[in-house]
Amino acid sequence: MALAVDTECKDTDKIAVAQAFSKAAKTYDQHAAFQRQVGHLLLDKLPHDLSGLKVLDLGCGTGYFTQLLALRGAQVTAFDLSDAMLAVCQSRCANLPVTYSKGDAENLPFEAHSFDLIFSSLALQWCHQLDALMTSLVQVLKSQGKLVYSTLLQGSLIELHSAWQQVDRQYQHVNQFHQIDSLKSAASQSGARQCQLENLQITLNYSSAIELMKDLKGIGATHVSGRSQGLTKPKTLLQVDQAYQVHKNSKGELPATYQVCLGELTK
C-alpha cells in the first residue's frame, strides 16, 4: 500500500472501510476462517496467563480474540473503526473485563504508557503511514510492553489480482498491501528495543473465485481505493471466475494465496 497518501484521500478511504466492515458485522464470523487461523498463530506467541495486564485489541472486529484475551485474565480495550463491529464485540464479551473504544489506529486516543500489550491481527493493512503508526503504538506501551501483530503483505491474493487483470486493467480490484521492507523500516524507527518479523505463506482452496469473493464480502474486505463499482455486476464476476480457472490445482481446487507477516515489537 502506498505510503504517500493525501489527507482527504486517506480520510475518504477510512470512512469507506468502516462502512464496509459495518455492513459485514453480522456475517463476518461465518466467513472468517482465515482470519481466525492467523489470529491464533499470533495468540500462540502470548503467555496463557495474562492476568492483570492491560491489553489493547487493535482492530478487534467482532471480538473473537477480545474474548480469548479476556478469558486469559487480561483487562482488554476493544478498539475498532466500525460501530457495528464493536456492537457485536460487546455482545460477545458481555460480563468480561472489556471496555470499548471507536477510532482510527492512525489517530489513537490513548495516553502514553497505557498498555502492557497490544494485540492486532489483520488490521494494520488498512493503515497508510506505517512509520507514524508504529511509533504511536510503541508510545502507548508501558516500559517492557509488547506489540504483537499480523498483517498482509504485497503478493496476497495474487491469483485474484491476475484474474481481474484479464477482465479489466483500468481499475484496481485487489488491495495493494505493505512491503516487508516498509514494516522493517517502521519497526526500526518506532523506538522499540527489540523487533522480530516472521513471513508466512498461507493458501486456502476454493471451488470457485466467486466463493472466494463471497468470503471477502462476508468479512467486509471489499473496499479498494479507485475501484469502479460498476464492474462488480454478475456477468463481470463470472468472467473473473473463468479467468481464475488457470490457477486450478491437480485436485481441481482454486488456490487463494496470502502473504502474512507476524511481528513482535518490545519497548
Rank of each mutant, 00 (worst) to 15 (best):
5 V>H: 10
6 D>P: 11
6 D>H: 13
8 E>A: 14
9 C>P: 06
10 K>M: 10
10 K>E: 09
11 D>R: 15
11 D>Y: 12
12 T>C: 10
13 D>V: 15
14 K>T: 05
17 V>H: 01
18 A>G: 13
19 Q>L: 08
19 Q>R: 12
26 K>F: 11
28 Y>W: 12
28 Y>P: 12
28 Y>A: 12
31 H>P: 06
31 H>R: 02
32 A>D: 07
33 A>Q: 14
33 A>L: 15
36 R>G: 06
38 V>Y: 04
41 L>A: 13
44 D>E: 13
45 K>H: 12
45 K>N: 11
49 D>C: 14
50 L>R: 08
53 L>P: 02
54 K>F: 06
54 K>P: 01
55 V>Q: 06
56 L>P: 00
59 G>E: 07
59 G>D: 05
59 G>T: 04
60 C>M: 07
60 C>F: 09
61 G>L: 01
61 G>S: 01
62 T>C: 01
63 G>Y: 03
73 G>A: 01
81 L>K: 07
82 S>H: 08
87 A>G: 09
88 V>Y: 09
88 V>F: 08
90 Q>L: 10
91 S>E: 14
92 R>M: 04
93 C>A: 01
98 V>C: 04
100 Y>H: 01
102 K>M: 13
104 D>G: 06
106 E>W: 02
110 F>I: 02
112 A>M: 06
115 F>L: 05
116 D>S: 13
117 L>K: 02
119 F>E: 13
119 F>I: 13
121 S>H: 14
123 A>I: 14
125 Q>E: 11
128 H>M: 00
133 L>R: 08
134 M>P: 05
134 M>K: 01
135 T>N: 02
135 T>F: 03
138 V>G: 03
139 Q>A: 11
139 Q>V: 05
140 V>K: 06
141 L>K: 09
142 K>D: 07
143 S>I: 12
144 Q>L: 07
147 L>D: 11
147 L>F: 10
152 L>C: 06
152 L>A: 10
158 I>K: 11
161 H>V: 05
161 H>N: 14
161 H>F: 00
162 S>N: 13
167 V>W: 12
171 Y>F: 06
174 V>E: 01
180 I>T: 05
185 S>F: 09
187 A>I: 04
187 A>E: 00
191 G>E: 05
191 G>H: 05
192 A>G: 10
193 R>W: 04
193 R>A: 03
195 C>Q: 00
195 C>K: 02
197 L>I: 05
198 E>P: 00
199 N>I: 08
203 T>E: 02
204 L>R: 15
205 N>L: 12
208 S>T: 15
209 A>W: 04
210 I>N: 09
211 E>K: 13
213 M>D: 02
218 G>R: 14
222 T>M: 00
222 T>K: 04
224 V>T: 05
231 L>Y: 04
233 K>G: 05
233 K>H: 10
234 P>F: 03
235 K>Y: 09
237 L>D: 00
243 A>W: 08
243 A>Y: 03
248 K>I: 15
248 K>S: 14
248 K>Q: 15
257 T>Q: 12
262 L>T: 04
262 L>Y: 05
265 L>I: 14
266 T>G: 03
